Computed example of a mutant assay.
Amino acid sequence: MNKRIEAVDILRGLTILAMILVNTPGTWSHVYPPLLHAKWHGLTPTDLIFPFFLFIVGISIFFAYENKPNTKSTYKKIIIRSLKLIGLGLFLNLFLPYFPLVEDFETLRLPGVLQRIGVVFLISSILFLNCNWKILLGISIFTLIGYWLFLGFMPFPNGIMPTFDRASNNWANYIDLNVLGKHMWQPDYDPEGLISTIPAIISCLFGILIGKTLSVLQKNKVFVLLMISSVFLSSGYLFNEWFPINKAIWSSSFVLVTCGWAVLILSIIYYFTDVLNLKQGAIFKYVGMNAITIYFLSSFISKSFYLTKVNNDHDIHTYLYDSFFVCPFFSEETSSLLYALAVVLFYVGLGYFLFKKKIFIKV
Rank of each mutant, 00 (worst) to 15 (best):
284 F>Y: 15
159 G>Q: 10
260 G>K: 10
73 S>K: 06
228 I>H: 06
17 L>V: 05
301 I>H: 06
156 F>Q: 07
55 F>I: 08
134 K>N: 14
129 L>G: 03
83 L>F: 11
307 L>C: 06
344 V>N: 01
335 S>Q: 04
359 I>H: 01
318 T>E: 14
109 R>L: 12
13 G>M: 03
355 F>R: 01
91 F>V: 09
316 I>V: 12
353 F>M: 05
182 K>T: 09
317 H>Y: 08
328 P>R: 01
104 D>I: 07
281 G>V: 10
85 L>T: 09
232 F>G: 06
21 L>A: 05
88 L>W: 09
298 S>M: 08
74 T>M: 03
65 Y>W: 01
33 P>F: 11
316 I>E: 01
118 G>E: 05
254 F>K: 14
185 W>V: 04
262 A>I: 08
327 C>E: 02
200 A>L: 10
134 K>H: 11
23 N>H: 10
134 K>Q: 14
147 Y>R: 13
254 F>L: 13
142 F>M: 14
172 A>V: 15
139 I>P: 10
168 S>H: 00
97 P>T: 10
220 N>E: 10
222 V>G: 00
10 I>W: 04
55 F>C: 01
47 D>W: 14
361 I>S: 04
287 V>N: 01
42 G>W: 11
76 K>A: 09
169 N>T: 09
87 G>R: 12
227 M>E: 13
117 I>S: 04
136 L>W: 04
309 K>Y: 13
170 N>Q: 09
72 K>H: 02
354 L>I: 02
254 F>N: 15
154 M>D: 08
36 L>M: 14
346 F>I: 13
278 L>S: 13
295 Y>R: 06
188 D>V: 07
311 N>W: 09
200 A>W: 11
180 L>R: 02
282 A>G: 13
257 V>T: 15
47 D>G: 15
207 G>W: 01
53 F>K: 12
33 P>H: 05
250 W>L: 07
207 G>F: 09
84 K>H: 07
239 F>T: 15
151 L>R: 12
339 Y>W: 14
254 F>D: 15
246 N>Y: 04
2 N>M: 04
282 A>H: 14
201 I>C: 07
318 T>S: 15
288 G>T: 03
107 T>V: 13
49 I>W: 06
26 G>P: 12
83 L>M: 10
145 I>T: 11
250 W>T: 07
258 T>P: 08
190 D>P: 07
54 L>F: 00
